[in-house]
Nucleic acid binder design. Structure first.
Lengths: 186, 186, 186, 186
DNA sequence: CATGAATGAGCCTTCATTCAT
DNA sequence: AATGAATGAAGGCTCATTCAT
């Protein structure tokens, strides 16, 4: 049955997010999944692999970036608004997971394929390159990508009154507008 | 002897920075400090406490913020340049430690007193409040503090070609200028 | 199908010979036999039993002793040459299996029916008794059986330049002659 | 205290001899040594290493070969009697250990330094070479070493009525004499 | 003040075996 | 007859922490 596999992945995410990779134990995951510990191993062979599989599942489902699609907008401001809005929404909704991944990534425990900070930065840079190439504009995209990255990180890491995705629509728009204005594009 | 205590703190920092709190072992620290394991406990009673003590030592020595002093500058731009320059310099120089602390902080393993992200954010907000109060200007300091925080985080977390503190003077100034310009102060 | 059963026995022998009883796993055997693990159990009910069955199959096929037939030779020297030649040939050809069985036997893990050292010793003693009874000679057959056993064991266990069965005919005969000469029959 | 270390080694030998390396568990050893399991690991770092250390201890104490000393005897028969007598005595006294080592060795689980069969064979060959060199006799020492090896192995492996070391002095001498006579030295 | 020696608890992983299909 | 999926039990190994000296 697909069922148990999904139970395990779900439980694994729960526990990994709550405790991080090192501190989480396969025992706890198994218990939370209501499965014998060995079943984890029959299915995922190692804790490491279970972690990667579980995380990739979410990343692919949630973070599948629309940056490239947005990049085709002719209007730069619209494009940037789109990115900021969309990314803040996704990151904000998955805050716990993101924090955990960032945490592991900062200690160098993550393979490239699930290293969020790299993923985010390069997909941003990529989208920006596409956009400004299209417009034949010569812009320091690395710098803007860094600015955008900084904005996102500040929302994840710094103390915050209300998560972005819980703001009402006008609140969100106001925030986004403010940040778009701050991006330095000469 | 003051000596042993310092050896231990030094070794502890080394190991904690390299591995993070959870993964670091008192065994390794003791070995690196060339001290019996129990000596750690006689002096610091617990791993947790050794960690906090060691980290505080560095934070106090290195991060002792000049924000408040800078805040008294009459010229806002000068003030902000000062902050950015100074913080990027310090963070960049202590990148490994900062990454580790951020990592632990993201998993909620850090007491308030050494929680870097909180520390940074509030000291920034604080300085900004003082400055703009002095100028009798009504400004959304939380937003600016968040912007500044984002800038700093982007330098710590995102992939970077050359650490800030290794740039030459004109390089640093250029970066700082660009970021000051990006701060949205209506 | 007879087929699967044979596949399993073959694979089991392979794995048991390579790893010994304890270290071999039913998982590996099943994999090598290209069969589901449970099929082993349906057919042989336990690992132990699979082992015994597989080993017996080979022993019966390969080791079926001609000692008794040889024992009827009138000429003692010819008889002994026959035994030595034949046993060295068989043991040498099945060296891996023999080593494994001996290994298990030494730890007392083997039932009588597949305990090689006992099997060999008693069939030797038996043949010798028959032979010397026939000749009405009173000889210490236990001692000779032990001597013969020692010869065989030395070929299996001690480091050797070339296995007996790979020698050319004259080489083999020379070896056999030497050993026959060494047997103490007063 | 040297005490616990010795307790552990003793218990380890007990258990390893009774069960063999693979089947023996560190848990059982620890229990038998009345020591926490981790203490084994603090002292010997790994099961493997505990095994080697324990075995070496006995081998060095018990098997320390006098072959070389005996080799200097001018009389070949005396020399061979000496070897046979001495080795049968030692092997017989340590039968359990020897069986276990042989068992492991047959499955290729033993490092050179504790591989009994190799050890015995080469020390025999060595002694024989020294002896016959001294006498300026050209003899096939490899063959004799193999014969001797066979004798010893037959005593260890084949079923036996009374262990050599439990025979009375005249019984022992008779056995030894018979075997010496069987050695083929042209 | 400093330490060598010891541990209870727990982790990741594996194995022979069984059940429902 | 054959199997995919699951497990209780156990194994090697490690960790933060504590006595007795």
């Amino acid at each position: 049955m697909r069922d148990k596999t999904e139970q395990i992945i779900k439980a694994a995410l729960d526990v990994f997010i709550k405790k991080g990779f090192q501190v989480a134990t396969t025992q706890e995951i198994a218990k939370e999944a209501e499965v014998a510990e060995i079943t984890l191993y029959r299915k995922f062979s190692t804790k490491q692999n279970l972690f990667i599989t579980a995380v990739k599942t979410v990343i692919e489902k949630q973070f599948n970036s629309h940056v490239k699609k947005l990049a085709k907008a002719e209007n730069t401001e619209e494009f940037l608004s789109g990115i900021i809005y969309n990314r803040l929404e996704v990151l904000s909704k998955n805050a716990s997971l993101v924090k955990m991944l960032l945490s592991e990534s900062l200690m160098g425990n993550l393979a490239e394929e699930i290293n969020l900070s790299t993923l985010i930065f390069s997909s941003l840079k990529n989208g920006l390159d596409i956009h400004f190439d299209m417009l034949n504009k010569n812009v320091d995209t690395a710098f803007i990508a860094r600015q955008l990255g900084g904005i996102f990180l500040s929302f994840i890491i710094l103390p915050i009154e209300q998560p972005f995705h819980e703001l009402d629509e006008s609140g969100k728009e106001e925030v986004v507008k403010k940040y778009v204005k701050s991006l330095v594009i000469e």
